[in-house]
Amino acid sequence: MNHDAVLEQKKIMESEWGGGKAPFGVSWRKYMMWIFIVSDAFTFGAFLAAYGLFRVTSAGWPDTYEVFTAFPFIGVEAPMLFVAMMTFILICSSFTMALAVSASYKNDRTKALKFLGLTILGGSIFILCQVYEWYHIIHDGATMTSNPWGVPLFSATFFMITGFHGLHVLSGLILLTITALKVKRGFYERRGSYEGVEIVGLYWHFVDLVWVFVFTFFYLL
């Protein structure tokens, strides 16, 4: 028996990539969510890239500061304030999500539930805001094929991108609700791991992340 070869073999077997282990130090579930996020980012990336092309090829792209001026109940025009608030809400919900994950790792079920509830609340408010905003610009005359501010592709890309993002928020809310119920019923406690909460959290942060870019590229630029 060659001693060096045995040692070498032992080293290989015990290395992180030597098999029988999770080489990234995360379970396959969590890694699966990560790569799903990468994949989904490519869909959004393609939408945004297409939007970029329309933006640079269309003369007279509408000024978003003149389009998105509505704010409920205040009666005066407040350019972009409403979207800024939506962004604020989504960031807050990401924050509470992070706290929910942190609480669940401390096995604090009540706290985890509380923060999950807040996250769901934030997400729901965001969706409602989006409904309001859609309602408003549809009311102003925007459709998939035309809008009062000029280039038809403006409203078409708006509805497409925010709509696709909205669907993500909606599915995120469903996932969050299921997760909250599982936490409540002690599912993760019995399983001995709160990883499920963290995985849903990843998805939720991603939804927030996408919004940051949509907000930047569509509204602010």
């Binding site: 290989i12 077997m13 098999g19 029988g20 990234f24 396959w28 890694y31 699966m32 790569i35």
Partner: peptide, 22 residues
Amino acid sequence: SLFGSLNYIVTVLNLRTKGMTL
């Protein structure tokens, strides 16, 4: 295809038997 890809990738990375390096 997405379902398939997700599965293949994590399986290859995480479920190799002992000694099965890349």
